[in-house]
């Protein structure tokens, strides 16, 4: 739930205001894919995947998602971004 919220919020706030959400289950995992046609992740976004030191104020949706999910695949470019992630179904 948290990961879906964080990634879709990113799509709305930074990815052009709207996006597409796909949900499916496979085995014990629930998969989610969020894609937008925004300008792509900013340069240096991979640095955002490092754990923050102490309390941080900036949005860290991708990092949070990587902490709560089993898999995360990010494809991003100037024509859009797609984030695919999965978590064990509770």
């Amino acid at each position: 739930m948290l990961a879906v919220n964080e990634i879709t919020t990113n799509a709305v706030l930074h990815g052009g205001g709207h996006g597409r959400l796909r949900l499916w289950s496979h085995g014990e995992l629930l998969w989610c894919e969020v894609s937008d046609e925004g300008p792509g992740l900013p340069a240096g976004w991979m640095g955002d995947m490092r754990p923050p030191a102490g309390f941080d104020f900036r949005g860290r949706g991708l990092w949070l998602t990587s902490m709560v999910c089993e898999h995360i695949t990010i494809v991003s470019g100037p024509a859009g971004t797609t984030v695919t992630f999965a978590a064990v179904r509770e």
Partner: peptide
């Protein structure tokens, strides 16, 4: 039932 990270941050800022 649910709080997103940004709202949890807001709560933390209040506590701070």
């Amino acid at each position: 039932d649910f709080i997103d990270a940004g709202s949890a941050r807001l709560l933390t800022v209040t506590a701070m």
